[in-house]
Design a protein around this nucleic acid. Structure first.
Lengths: 344, 344
DNA sequence: CTGAAAGCGCTAACAA
DNA sequence: TTGTTAGCGCTTTCAG
């Protein structure tokens, strides 16, 4: 791997000149530029990222922080990552996904010495210790999500409040009055205080009161089994429930089955709506599960932009961007079967 | 952020001594060690990763390369990532997920200057241009997957050959003789030559001949719709098919529906087995879809170990590790409903 | 056991 | 327009 000095020698110029043409930092005559580029070609020169980082204090690398909680990636998480990476790349940055423990203890290694120019936080909790860390580490960051009070922080997030209200509007229009809400209980886990759940739940509860409706919240355990159990519980506390929101993809299949096992037909007796999920996840059910689809790609792009604006000094205003999920309702298709499929 | 020199001054020692205690590179008197550590504490010293990388040519960072093809993460991919990251962390490394285009053009930036000590490749194609790149970039790497001839390369992979044979054994035991195989056609995409599909398909085809069975292969388009269409096609070319393997998670729901729509009951008339998928994915169907579960976590761990062994010089032998998927068959539960659930 | 000093490869004043 | 040069913060011989 050739060094810049070697290129300089080969081209008969100084190392500074090479640096200028490599980075476009200063004007260089077309003639010398050509000689330099030729030399770079011949020597297969590759700019040493580490050396550059040390000298310039910039790496043009940003990190998307992913909590190492053993959870798999949701489709929405994938969307954040892929779209943010794409946008970063368009703007001349590299985006990497960096696993950090939820407490943010390994944040120091990552950030110290400017290995990355900035970070995007996701899976944000109401009182997220990582934002404090990041703040006193003095590294630029942006949230996908919001802490309890994010007014002073740059963020983009799903508008859970609107999403829930929209969901209820939709279901009320369909004539529903008794609601259930199924989600995960993260207390006693490292992800306790996970903001989306808390916001959605409190919006749901407030809305029930405001609208004079009846609402029951139940927590589901892991997987399909958890969903099934949740159905059982829900029907126990609210036997006449006619619409249920579920914010837990891995349990939605179980929920449907549980409701069905209890004699409820869907959607004739009970409507089910999956919150902040993805179209693909809804498609995994048959008939398709109605879904409030999370705007993952849009948010990922926005987050990358927000961070890079901050890094490049493009924009000074604090980005506060909220986007609700949009309804993708199950359409009843003509060829709908009347019995369930079974595994072999 | 305090520098090493500042710590040295504060502790009344030389910068070299500080370096020695920080890295444990050389023996230092307990007394001075104490003074140095104290100084580090007081000054909140954080070793500058970039500077260290430049001086030592090591970052203790490894990258898992993820192709930027717009695909979402499969559960198996998540498993690779999470388990490899975990293992890396245990061994004192950081593992980051790095998006690179399938051609491997942006590999240079990543690797030049030793930003990462080594890389793990995934989603490997039969003739993967990235391994050539990596080879002449002279960076240590390990594959999760195999190229056409991987005999000289370190790899860990799913044993697709055994997986398919095992699947067929299982289904033959159940009395099946006429098979279908549904997968994706990646020709004309950047992922053309994707090894898992090719290996699975050719094993399937060879096995059909060897075993004197009838087998039909059909390609499915994207999503549920693709699965449904595939069912249609399959029943057209092989109306008497009684067992179908599918290696395409996002279409399995559609496949089931398509079979059902054509009057086939599952599993009474047709058995369906999902290949190299995850238990969680199988659970999304009701009743649960039988699945050959990919050993994602095991492979991720192994891949990290293989690479780090190489980096640390712990082991010299070329790792060639193959693990088949294991059957997780759908169990018929008592409370199985007799009609399908529907979305609202 | 500790210190001095020469880099690692590049950037960015400052000169010329 | 191009060259000189002093760092960036740390590692690592080599002396002592």
């Amino acid at each position: 791997m050739a060094t810049m000095q070697q290129v300089a020698d080969r081209a008969g110029v100084s190392i500074a000149t090479v640096s200028f043409v490599v980075n476009g930092t200063k004007y260089v005559t077309p003639a010398t530029t050509a000689r330099v580029t030729a030399a770079m070609r011949e020597l297969k020169f590759r700019n040493n990222v580490v050396a550059r980082a040390l000298a310039s204090r910039r790496t043009r690398i940003i990190a998307l922080l992913f909590p190492t909680t053993g959870n798999r990636f949701s489709p929405t998480t994938s969307d954040f990552f892929m779209s943010a990476a794409e946008r970063a790349s368009e703007r001349g940055y590299h985006l990497v996904l960096w696993p950090v423990d939820p407490a943010g203890d390994d944040l120091d290694d990552l950030v110290s010495g400017g290995l990355v120019d900035g970070v995007i936080l996701m899976e944000v909790r109401m009182d997220d210790p990582r934002v404090a860390k990041l703040t006193d580490l003095d590294v630029p960051f942006t949230l996908i999500g919001r802490t309890r009070d994010s007014s002073g922080l740059p963020y983009v997030d799903i508008d859970f409040e609107t999403t829930i209200e929209d969901s209820l509007d939709h279901l009320e229009d369909l004539g529903h009055r008794r609601f259930g809400f199924v989600l995960e209980n993260l207390d006693d886990t490292p992800m306790a205080g996970y903001a989306p759940h808390l916001r959605a739940q409190s919006t749901f509860e407030r809305a029930m009161v405001d609208r004079g409706l009846e609402g029951a919240v139940v927590y589901a355990g892991p997987g399909s089994e958890g969903g099934r159990e949740a159905a059982r519980e829900l029907l126990e506390v609210a036997p006449d429930v006619s619409a249920v929101l579920i914010m837990k993809d891995d349990s939605s299949a179980g929920l449907l089955v549980g409701l069905y096992a209890a004699g409820r037909r869907i959607p004739e007796d009970v409507s089910v709506l999956s919150i902040a999920s993805s179209g693909a996840a809804g498609d995994q059910h048959y008939p398709r599960l109605s879904t409030m689809v999370a705007p993952g790609r849009e948010l990922g792009t926005r987050a990358a932009d927000a961070l890079i604006d901050q890094l490049d000094g493009t924009s000074v205003e604090l980005p506060h961007f909220l986007l609700p999920c949009v309804l993708r309702s199950a359409e009843s298709t003509a060829e709908a079967p009347t019995e369930p499929h079974r595994g072999p």
